[in-house]
Design a protein around this nucleic acid. Structure first.
Lengths: 186, 186
DNA sequence: TAATTATGTATCGAATCGATATTTGTTAAT
DNA sequence: ATTAACAAATATCGATTCGATACATAATTA
């Protein structure tokens, strides 16, 4: 078994997701944080739908969150209402427009496709599950997969060593373990 | 087997990691993108260390990336050098200061600890591996875990239904499947 | 009343996009 | 060969928006 750090793989998936998210946000004219907030509000319970909780969740300052919330209110994505008992507390809730945006942004197909791909398999050890999940994400991501060189379809091993089938250049062991922009999943 | 979407779990892990990253960046006086760039440069091969590849990887415009790179150069984290053959192309490389920052930022203990926790276990099905990985992350994250209500140590099932052991309030099925800021891992 | 908690506000530097410009490379035609 | 035309990689500029800091306000608690 090769030594693979599971959380290293998760980091790689995260990077793919971040890029996807940024692209989607640019389309919609939003910031990644905005989607993250809408997503959080759609998933959190009644003890956790406050600005302070959001700030903790996002790792941002309260002031910043406060401003971002103003924007989202102005855009009609969320609404505020003050707590009946403790009137310092503000409860946040998604409005229809917010849910619509979120739904639009979520169904990027990326995950749906990746899920399908992943479901087709059955594996034994932990690492492999994550490896396959990452591959599934890369495969579902039409644009570019940015995978490890040695997992690329053009990567070849011969008696003379490692080689890139695109550039026909020899590769070192270290080369083959790095991220390549030309990476292509079989 | 409960129906769990693996990529849903990955999204949740991503959220935890993002928050961690943001906090770390605020400490270091950097933006998340800066760390992402340094990280990418530490992992990419010689075909992929260009501004354009970075822009694709990050899902940002070339203009933005260009400016961010200027900043990182000014701070002494990276250097540029033009390609010997095609002089339109710029190659980016980490400098010592950049590697130092990266190393500092990476060793947040979060992953190391989570890895340890995860390694203690052995599981059978796919979903469970991801569930455990998420739990490991939440456990390693000292601040707040933001987990699902029903995975919280204070969550209880009795003959009268579901209940939160902190607030002593009854919970609906839907409540128990939402994120809670008070979530605490056993 | 003092201390604490939850949130809002004002300011200012910094990051972002989008468009345009610059440099280098490639192609095709003369 | 030479030149022109197009394409590719990156840089620059201006308008806009974001986000952190520091301070202010209001409600709650001890």
């Amino acid at each position: 078994m090769e030594k693979v750090d599971v959380f290293d793989l998760i980091e790689r998936m995260t990077a793919l997701m971040r890029a996807e998210e940024r692209r989607k946000c640019t389309e919609l004219g939003l910031q990644p944080v905005h989607l993250q907030i809408l997503d959080y509000l759609s998933r959190c319970n009644r003890y956790s739908d406050t600005p302070a909780a959001l700030a903790n969740f996002l790792g941002m300052t309260r002031g910043t969150v406060s401003q971002t919330l103003l924007l989202l209110v102005k855009k009609g994505f969320i609404k505020k209402s003050s707590d009946a008992i403790d009137r310092r507390i503000v409860h946040l809730a998604l409005l229809q427009a917010g849910e619509a945006i979120l739904k639009n942004a979520r169904s990027s197909e990326l995950f749906n496709q990746a899920s399908l791909i992943l479901r087709e398999n059955n594996f034994l050890n932990q690492e492999e599950v994550f490896v396959k999940a990452l591959l599934a994400l890369q495969k579902a991501n039409k644009s570019q997969s940015f995978g490890l060189c040695k997992t690329c379809r053009y990567f070849t091993r011969s008696s003379e060593g490692l080689m890139c089938g695109l550039t026909h250049e020899p590769l070192s062991q270290s080369d083959s373990e790095k991220i390549c922009q030309e990476h292509s999943v079989a």
